[in-house]
Write a protein that binds this DNA or RNA. Structure first.
Lengths: 154, 154
DNA sequence: TGCAAAGAAGGAAGAATGTTCTGAATGATC
DNA sequence: GATCATTCAGAACATTCTTCCTTCTTTGCA
């Protein structure tokens, strides 16, 4: 699974992060190479799992998702069985865009995207009925200042 | 700018969210339609800004980004000039993947992706030297349980 | 109900792009 | 310095995109 990633690979990934719909010729020109090596490297990076998938970024508000919450969760339960059911609940809920297990006194953080505050409450009620949590704090986003999942490869 | 989005549009967007590299024919088959209407609708959705751009999702750890922090920021300054310089600082820093202005006693939350803890400290020092902040709490992610920016269109 | 307008299906055709292949060049190893 | 393996540039082929057209269905309105 280990793979050697050189400077040209990073340039290609940088281009794909900005716009994955460009043609191989354009990308090759941008990174100062030609079509064949770019194609071979993209294939290699895909097979190695460095490139996971190719998606479109949608405008959440245009599709009716007006509310975004960051949810800080504390729990007193740390057994494997509890954790398994918690993780499964998060995976199954499409409102949960991100979930991280944290170090420190807060155990988990979630990013939850929903239509409105009522939809968040429905999500919250469903979650706490499925798994026991000790303390939940919801932070409501008023403005999305920046949103990208591009890595700084420059 | 307003656009009417029907069920077929949502199905198409759902397919594109999962895998934007599939051909029009395949997508048309998946949503139970044919090539022409699918192409027209994708074009319409792109022009309306519902589809923002097309990118690849990379494996952060494979590229050496082993640390992810959520940063909670409180500030006592709420003037426009301070806010402008703060926003500009966030936009310019590629480590900042997400930035939200919040309601409540915490003013901002950031998601910061860096190589390691030392790189985070460098980022932190640079940030507080640029803009005054009252209080900063960093939450260190131990495990990325879930990560997607797909909207629940089903 | 009937009429007009809009959109969908299906296919055809040219342009653009993806994918494979080959010979040349480059660099590493001994 | 010779040999081997790897990579690159460009050609050649295959697929897909994009546009256009015709027919048919659906939608909206009088």
């Amino acid at each position: 699974m280990n793979i050697r990633i050189d400077d040209l690979d990073r340039k290609i990934l940088g281009e794909l992060q900005v716009d994955a719909s460009r043609s191989l010729d354009e990308i090759a020109k941008s990174v100062g190479s030609s079509k064949t090596p770019v194609w071979n490297r993209i294939k290699k990076l895909r097979e190695a799992g460095v490139i996971r998938n190719q998606t479109v970024n949608l405008d959440p508000e245009a599709l009716g998702f007006e509310a975004c919450f960051f949810v800080l969760i504390r729990t007193s339960e740390h057994e494997a069985a509890w954790q398994d059911s918690f993780l499964r609940a998060l995976q199954e809920r499409p409102e949960v865009q991100e979930a991280h297990r944290l170090a420190g006194d807060i155990d988990y953080i979630l990013k939850v995207r929903v239509q409105n505050a009522r939809a968040y409450d429905a999500f919250y009620q469903a979650l706490i009925s499925e798994v026991r949590v000790y303390n939940v704090t919801a932070l409501l986003s008023m403005e999305e200042i920046k949103s990208t999942n591009a890595l700084p490869l420059g």
